[in-house]
């Protein structure tokens, strides 16, 4: 990774510290700055309220010309997070063709937090969960809350 990219990641970390998002904590390791550990609380107004989620943000070598890669380390019942051991997300500005180099990690964190409040079933990675969300909201809410208790406490 180039020195320019490192410089930019450092600067982005400082930006995140200066303007922290509610319920979001970043564990930053200066020895390994291309991998951020994020602790995100389920937003109060969402079905994930009360849950504590561990996420990972990995910066590719080509950063910021390629988007960072986000993965949920805590299991979550959500249409936009893959329901497997990867917990990957691939939508909006996280897609290589949407990402522009001036975009920042802080926007990524905002995107994730907003998706917890309001999932996007039209760009889903888990089609059955999206279907549940669209056609049977009560059932969706119940399962999501159940998963919070089981995996995210």
């Amino acid at each position: 990774m180039s020195t320019g990219a490192k410089k930019r990641i450092l600067r982005e970390y400082a930006e995140c510290q200066n303007d922290p998002l509610p319920g979001v904590k970043i564990n930053f390791d200066e020895q390994n700055m291309t991998k951020w550990e994020i602790l995100m609380d389920g937003p109060d107004q969402s079905v994930y309220a009360g849950g504590h989620y561990k996420l990972e943000i990995n910066f590719p070598n080509e950063y910021p010309f390629k988007p960072p890669v986000v993965s949920f380390k805590t299991k979550i019942y959500h249409p936009n997070v893959s329901n497997d051991d990867k917990g990957s997300m691939c939508l909006g500005l996280l897609r290589p063709e949407e990402w522009k180099p001036p975009n920042k990690v802080i926007s990524v964190l905002h995107l994730i937090r907003n998706l917890l409040i309001e999932p996007n079933p039209d760009d889903a990675i888990e089609l059955s969960i999206a279907n549940d969300y669209k056609t049977n909201r009560a059932e969706f809410d119940k399962t999501a809350k159940d998963w919070v208790k089981r995996y995210a406490k």
Partner: peptide, 27 residues
Amino acid sequence: DCYKQYLRTKIKDEGEAARIRCPGDGC
């Protein structure tokens, strides 16, 4: 330098040519 690197990524890695967009956010 950044502009060039952006174009390089688009052309070499993503194989785009006639429709590369401005690197500006949302442009």
